[in-house]
């Protein structure tokens, strides 16, 4: 029978909790930057001229093909060699995760925009709206409501992806759990605790987003 000696957790819980803070902070920043960039890319992919659409599509599809670990490692180790700019693991992680998650957001936005019924666009045109007006006032608001469940998954995907930033030594929760597990020789307790903590963060997040969506779904139904 395994001996559940919890001394490592008792000693290091503050350190680990600080890691949870870093995880949540990095996640929040990443979600904010990715939504901004991703919505812009998604909208431009639908409405810009081909000279912009083609490279944006290439960017999005490339990010669908390259693992986030690879982007992280490249951004942290290779990017500074190429440019001479080096900003530390946290910012490298923010940049890499943003580049990756924004592409995912852009796909969601595009699908949302394409799902708005053509009749809605005709109705907006019939009122005399200009293209930017109808995008901002009719298409995007409906698309965003429909995208909410998918945007919710962006939040949980981001939180999960920040754990991969442990590989470039961002002192977030995963990294700290790894450190404590290694130093204390109690990997079973520490990793199991980490499992529970991540689940306790992620499960309510997904549930909350489902709730919100159920409440606003009618706003996107046309």
């Amino acid at each position: 029978m395994f001996d559940w000696d919890l001394s490592a957790l008792e000693e290091s819980w503050r350190f680990l909790l600080g890691g949870v803070g870093v995880t949540l902070g990095l996640s929040a920043l990443t979600v904010a930057t990715s939504l901004t960039l991703g919505i812009a890319v998604g909208v431009l992919r639908c409405y810009a001229g081909a000279w912009l659409r083609v490279p944006l599509t290439f960017y999005v599809d490339s990010m669908r093909a390259i693992p986030v670990l690879v982007v992280l490692v490249w951004m942290y180790f290779a990017f500074p060699l190429l440019t001479g700019v080096s900003a530390g693991p946290f910012w490298a992680a923010l940049a890499a995760l943003t580049v990756h998650v924004a592409a995912y957001v852009a796909e969601i936005v595009r699908a949302g925009i394409e799902s708005v019924r053509p009749g809605q666009i005709r109705a907006a045109l019939a009122l005399g709206m200009s293209q930017p007006q109808l995008v901002m006032q009719v298409v995007l608001p409906q698309a965003l409501v429909r995208m909410l469940p998918a945007i919710g998954s962006v939040v949980s995907v981001t939180i999960k992806d920040t754990a991969i930033a442990a590989t470039i030594a961002v002192p977030e929760f995963m990294k700290r759990a790894e450190t404590v597990a290694g130093q204390s020789y109690q990997p079973v307790q520490v990793y199991t605790a980490a499992l529970v903590v991540y689940f306790l963060i992620l499960f309510p997040t997904t549930r909350l987003i489902d709730r919100i969506h159920a409440r606003v779904a009618h706003l996107g139904r046309s």
Binding site: F2, S156, I159, K160, D161, T162, A163, I164, A166, T167, M174, A177, E178, A181, P187, V188, Y191, T192, A194, L195, Y198, F199, L202, F203, T206
Partner: peptide, 20 residues
């Protein structure tokens, strides 16, 4: 499993599963 980072599951499978 849908609400866990895969990298943690990997570590867990590596360090914890054999012990348990």
């Amino acid at each position: 499993f849908r609400n866990l980072p895969l990298i943690l599951v990997v570590y867990w499978a590596f360090y914890v599963l054999p012990e348990l």
